[in-house]
Design a protein around this nucleic acid. Structure first.
Length: 488
RNA sequence: GGUACCUUUGCCGAGUGGUUAGGCGCCAGUCUGCAAAACUGGUUACAGCGGUUCGAUUCCGCUAGGUACCUCCA
């Protein structure tokens, strides 16, 4: 498989450090607000990567962190912790806020059919490890203590290593272009960043450390927890493109400073989701939460969109391209998904014909799907392959083509593997095989069979009554050549 | 201002040095008691200007427009 590595800006052949095993770390959410469409993108992108790696037979340890401390508020000069600020506003315990938003995040992710990672570590639960990590950086001489806070000495680091290796910058540029913020007099240079920050008296969240009562710096948790759970070297680190600088750059610097070598082999970054051409983000205030998408309650939304529509919408574009949100684009995605869905159900009903000739497209389908995924997760191309095979399914369904048992089995298997297991599309109707559901389905079938009989007797009054009243109840009735299909 | 990236047919969105992306929409047809739906077929574009090349949407340069990062951010 080829993976685009931000570090080299090339597609590289993926080769795990330990054969058969993959360690991947993805930057998770800061839980001080509801997840929006932008959060869905990395979650889904790396969910598909996780699924695909497992499909390829790897045993994957997937770590996605929860940031519940340490991110400084932009407009809070005194370095107030984001979570703490929100907590005071809402008169809640900080951990109550964290838990509240984390529960909601998990709920949204489950709706999007995003598999949970294998480890979901909290920054707040790794304060000790982060302190130990800082000690190692101090011991290596790449950090200094200033008034109870600890800062990373970027210049000193850059004399030995390359600060800017990931983002393609050099220290001179950064120095020239860094804004001069207030309250930075503790730092030797503006480009230095905090490893430990002394808490101001009004801070709610703080922990003891050798330097002060305070909290860890913005970038430390990922270096610490990544190496703790995946080792001093691991395969993949993912996140949004906006994290390349400074977050991931600092992460590299911290790890190299503490350990003496880089930790990550492949850096992967998903692109942004835009709204009217502009990045959708918390700080810009132009985001739409996932819940709003599901309910349709937002002034920019014409109507609700299902979680699967959102997932499909995101997967229809390559993860390194920007995707622009619009109602029109979402409607198009919804209809496309619906078509895929119906075709999949039709596939389950197809009957094989013994004498049917082999279908060439089916022989190559699996390989084409694999090639799409192997080329840096080209889910858009994979979906196009599925749509191509949909034509075959529909032609057989319409009786315009026949299919032999071998081809039918293969077709089913490919759809199961690529559409359901790897893309994670939920195509099964309700998946509900309970007695209640079976009875209910049976009852609708019964009604529609009565209607079918009425139609055969040209009793249009009865036939239309059944159709119209079921439609009024929210059913979609589709007449087919020799019967009917329905959905709700 | 610096750095990186982008500009594909009505819309969304892949990809490629010479051959069909795909979806939505639209048009035509099939099916049909009516309606709906479905299905089939059609719908050939790569910002502009130069250059390299037998040949460029694809490589290089310039111009225009846009985005991201440089500050918390997915």
């Amino acid at each position: 498989m080829l993976i685009y590595n931000t570090l080299t800006r090339l597609k590289e052949q993926f080769k795990p450090i330990h054969e058969g095993h993959v360690g991947m770390y993805v930057c998770g959410p800061t839980v001080y607000g509801d997840a929006h469409l932008g959060h869905a993108r990395p979650a889904i992108t790396f969910d598909v990567l996780y699924r695909y790696l497992m499909h390829l037979g790897y045993k994957v340890r997937y770590v996605r962190n929860i940031t519940d401390v340490g991110h400084l508020e932009h407009d809070a000069d005194e370095g107030e912790d984001k979570v703490a600020k929100k907590a005071r506003l809402e008169q809640l315990e900080p951990m109550e806020v964290v838990q509240y938003y984390l529960n909601r995040y998990h709920h949204d992710m489950a709706l999007l059919n995003v598999l949970p990672p294998t480890i979901e570590p909290h920054a707040s639960a790794h304060i000790i490890e982060q302190i130990e990590f800082i000690k190692r950086i101090l011991d290596a001489g790449f950090a200094y203590i200033s008034d109870g806070s600890v800062y990373f000495d970027v210049e000193k680091y850059n004399n030995v290593h390359h600060y800017g290796i990931l983002s393609g910058r050099d220290i001179e540029q950064i120095r020239e272009n860094t804004r001069h913020l207030d309250g930075q007099n503790e730092k030797r240079r503006s480009i230095d960043f905090a490893l430990w920050k002394k808490a101001a008296p009004e801070h709610i969240m703080h922990w003891p450390s050798p330097w002060s009562e305070g909290f860890p710096g913005w970038h430390l948790e990922c270096s610490t927890m990544g190496t703790k759970y995946l080792g001093e070297q691991f395969d993949i680190h993912g996140g949004g493109m906006d994290l390349i600088f400074p977050h991931h750059e600092c992460e590299i610097a911290q790890s190299v400073a503490a350990l003496g070598h880089p930790t990550v082999h492949y850096w992967m970054h998903n692109n942004m989701i835009t709204i009217n051409g502009q990045k959708m983000g918390k700080s810009l205030g132009n985001f739409i939460t996932l819940e709003q998408f599901f309910t349709g309650e937002h002034e920019l939304l014409d109507r609700p969109y299902s979680p699967m529509t959102i997932r499909f919408f995101i997967l229809q574009a390559h993860y390194r391209s920007t995707v622009d949100f619009s109602n029109q684009a979402l409607e198009a995605a919804e209809k496309g998904l619906q078509k895929l869905n119906e075709t999949y159900h039709r596939l389950q009903t197809l009957k094989a014909t013994d004498a049917a000739p082999d279908i060439a497209e089916i022989k190559t389908l699996r390989r084409q799907c694999a090639e799409a995924m192997d080329d840096d997760l080209n889910t858009a191309l994979l979906i196009a392959q599925l749509f191509d095979s949909a034509k075959i399914i529909n032609s057989v369904h319409d009786g315009k083509m026949t299919i032999n048992a071998e081809d039918l089995t293969e077709l089913n298997s490919v759809w199961q593997t690529y559409a359901i297991d790897i893309l994670g599309l939920t195509l099964s109707d309700s998946g509900d095989d309970s007695n209640t559901a079976q009875a209910y389905k049976g009852a609708v079938d019964l009604l529609l069979n009565i209607r079918l009989k009425a139609k055969q007797n040209k009793d249009w009054a009865t036939s239309d009554q059944i159709r119209d009243q079921l439609t009024a109840l929210g059913f979609q009735i589709k007449d087919t050549k020799d019967g009917f299909e329905w959905s709700i």
